[in-house]
Simulated assay, not measured.
Amino acid sequence: MKAVWMGIAAASALLMVGTAQANADLAKSSGCMNCHTADKKLVGPALKDIAAKYKGDAGAVDKLAVKVQKGSQGVWGPVPMPPNAKVSDADAKKLVEWILSLK
């Protein structure tokens, strides 16, 4: 029985790693990583800083998904985030959920 639980835990860990990699790949292909990095400010804020700012905000996923698609200005400084209309609603939400999961 212990082996079964260890197998389930290992499979879950592999699935999470695969999902995280898929989301990182989506961020790269969507252009997010041209201006953002995971842990330090580039042109835009670090993704981990975004996660920290919106931690506990129940409406953050929907609010930030709109910003991914339509752009934003003034939240993190004077440099605007350009709109990224090619990102679908579903992908924008996936990206934001992944960003908010970063620590």
Rank of each mutant, 00 (worst) to 15 (best):
K28F: 13
N23D: 15
K28S: 14
L47S: 07
K40H: 11
T37F: 08
K48D: 06
V43W: 03
G56T: 07
G44D: 06
C32E: 01
Y54C: 09
N34V: 12
L47T: 05
K53Q: 15
L47G: 06
L47Q: 03
L26T: 11
G44Q: 02
K41V: 15
A38C: 02
A27V: 04
D39P: 01
A24S: 08
G31E: 00
M33R: 00
Q21L: 14
K55N: 10
P45R: 05
K28Q: 14
N34W: 04
S30C: 08
G18W: 10
K28H: 13
G31I: 01
G18A: 14
C35S: 09
M33N: 02
L47H: 05
G31T: 01
P45V: 10
D49R: 02
Y54P: 03
D25T: 12
K55Y: 03
M33V: 11
S29G: 09
K41I: 11
Q21T: 13
C32W: 01
D39W: 05
V61G: 06
K28V: 15
S30I: 05
Y54S: 11
A38L: 10
A27K: 00
S29Q: 09
A24H: 08
D25H: 14
S29L: 07
A20Q: 11
G56H: 06
N23S: 15
Q21Y: 15
G18T: 09
K28R: 14
G31H: 00
P45N: 14
A60V: 06
K41R: 15
V43Y: 07
C32L: 03
G44A: 07
G56S: 12
A27E: 00
A20R: 13
C32P: 02
T37L: 05
V43F: 12
G18D: 01
I50C: 10
D25M: 13
L42Y: 10
K55A: 14
M33K: 03
G59N: 09
A27I: 02
K48Y: 07
K41A: 15
A38W: 00
V61P: 01
S29C: 02
Y54K: 04
A22D: 04
S30M: 01
D49E: 13
A27N: 00
G59W: 01
A60Y: 04
D25Q: 13
L42F: 14
G18I: 12
D39I: 06
K28M: 12
A27C: 03
D25A: 15
K40T: 12
K40R: 12
C35N: 05
P45T: 12
V43E: 07
N23Y: 10
A24I: 02
V61I: 10
K53Y: 07
L47C: 06
T37G: 11
S29H: 04
N23P: 00
K41E: 13
L26H: 11
A22L: 09
M33E: 04
A51T: 02
V43L: 13
G56N: 08
A38V: 12
A24T: 02
A51V: 07
L26M: 13
A60H: 03
A38F: 10
D57W: 08
G44S: 06
N34F: 11
D25N: 15
A52I: 02
K53R: 15
